[in-house]
Design a protein around this nucleic acid. Sequence first.
RNA 1: AGCGAGGUGGGGUAGUCAGGAUAUCCCGACGGGCUCAUAACCCGUAGAUCGAUGGUUCAAAUCCAUCCCUCGCUACCA
Length: 663
Amino acid sequence: MSDGPILVTCGLPYTNGPCHLGHLRTYVPADFYVRFLRRRGEEVVFVCGSDNHGTPIVVMAENQGVTPRDLSNRYHEHFAHIFQRMGIRFDHFGMTDGETNHRRTRSIVNALKEKGYIYPQVVEQSYCPKCRRFLPDRYVEGICPYCDTPARGDECDQGCGRHLEPGEIRKPRCLVCGTDAELREQEHFFFRLSEFGKFLEDYLQGLQGTSNARNYALGWVKEGLRDWNITRTLDWGVKFPGHDELVVYVWVDAPIGYISFTEEWARSKGLDWKRYWCGKNKVTHFIGSDIIYHHCIFWPALLTGAGYSAPHAVVASGMVKIDDQKFSKSRGYVVWTGEDYLDKGLPADYLRYYLLSYTNHTKELNFSWKVFSERVNNELVSTLGNFIYRSLFFAHKFFGKVPDGPVSAPTMEAIDRCVGDMDRAVRDFEFKGATDALMALAAYGNGYIQNQAPWKLVKTDPAAAERVVKDCLQVAHALALLMEPVLPDAAARVWRMLGNADVVEEHPISDASVRIASVTLPEPVPLFEKLEESRTRELEAVLKKRVEWAKQAAKEKDLVSIEEFSRMDLRVGKVISAEPVKGSKKLLRLMVDIGEEKPRLVVAGMAEFYKPEEMAGLSVIMVTNMKPAKIFGIESQGMVLAAGEQASLLVPLKDVPPGTMIR
RNA sequence: AGCGAGGUGGGGUAGUCAGGAUAUCCCGACGGGCUCAUAACCCGUAGAUCGAUGGUUCAAAUCCAUCCCUCGCUACCA
């Protein structure tokens, strides 16, 4: 079945905030996948680590008055602890700021340099004279050079959506202090991603995992690839070899972490990490669908360029929504794994089951406490838990042990079917399909015990009742083995209640069809407890409160003080003349008298709604202290106020002279 | 705007590539039965113009075209 060891990794959690449900959407299925395959006899290594570099961490650390290292350590510990509590068990959980990763990153960058895949280029970059530093990526805002709309430093987020290279943006401003940034020249280093188009196209055709990852990446490759600037002017990060003033871009050293964490793990076991990364490999990355580009394009190109093998599979999970709202920390739509879930005493098993069984792995998952508790109560508690408990209860009460004798053929078939279905589903990354198969076996058990009615047989034909109970216990035994990857804690409890002294995880799943021995049964206890409605309401209330609180905070943040308002110089202006701007459909060139010596020249986008002759003579409201802006080559010295799509002009109701202040 | 992923009873989902006769399964709702078990389990009922429109065909959820909506790439993000 296996042709070499499988290395499974998860997208690295970024150490600038706590673990939330979105993270778990990737980590729980990965952990399930690893647990299941291991118990199918595959050799699997499971590594992950925290991602510590990049500007957001530097800025957040500054805000909190701590070092980036301190901040990273804090959240690193947090994630490690949460994963342990959630039953997500990595063989190793490292840090990208660790020594191994610094070394491995430099080694890979040097390899790329040697092979000519990295070249220097002088770029103009935004520099904030007040903060006295270069402004990377998102710490700049300005105007998109392609479509003239406001944009962020690395992406035209409101307009055309183009990716912007550092230095491309026009009118850059520092996002931290608001100062106009200046452009300074600096030597940076670029990765020749554009040369990997053909390689990627072939590679992606054969890439295993989920189709969303493959298709999305193929689309990008077909559009053509641009070289990447892989250096940043920062202190925090992996120093670019030979240039201490530069660090490598976080998306270089973060995925290299996958290799470094394998190295660290292998070292501790006295093994060779190359076995997992060089030559034919079975590296499987579990990631969120937001970082497909990096894992399916940039990362394979980087690896290939440096002489490593590209990953075997990429499994991309859909994003999480909360109560039908887009996931958003600032708007309060977030469920924290610790604070909102584990700390409240809710079992990890419930959440693992819910995340795995709710919807297709690649689709968006809409979380709500109502559906969560509904599924827990009706599926886990009623179907699965109840079947196991009623079987054990009955067996214990009437026989005190597992009865001797055979297991019926239909029951064995049901078990084998479940094993086969789950196996197929897991290997296809259909995790919902896998939990469905598990629940189908529990449903088989329920149907079987109901139809056979051993509680009747025990009075008329005790031997027949024994045979029925034997079947039920065999199913419970199979369920314990099969549910372990989903519900590790519950599986361990069932295993003990079945009279086993050893550990369920040490048994291969194929033991499901090994006939159980006649052992003494301890007194069983119910497997799961229902979530009371009052409990669900409490959990909903926490979320609701957070959303309201966030709304309030946003409102306060948006409130404008009288001082801020008074900075705006709003005046009544009289339009002296108006004429169309040549070559433009939308623009009018206005001369407006605002009580100054000379009228102001204003370019206004209202030609579609007003004829020049309608405008002339009108009194309008104008912002007079706008920064002059060049529109269509004409410098506009103010802005005329208008409302809505139709540009309905704001005009004074009573006659006032030009230059009158608006208060 | 572009590219990618989606849209199937109240929620989730199978089926779509290789078109076929009552559209699958799980949960919820409703009714009945049963009682070993955590008011559970079993059986049954209702509920879907398969996002919209047009086309191809004897036949369309499925193929073709156009359009609409949601999400991702695109703050805070796995």
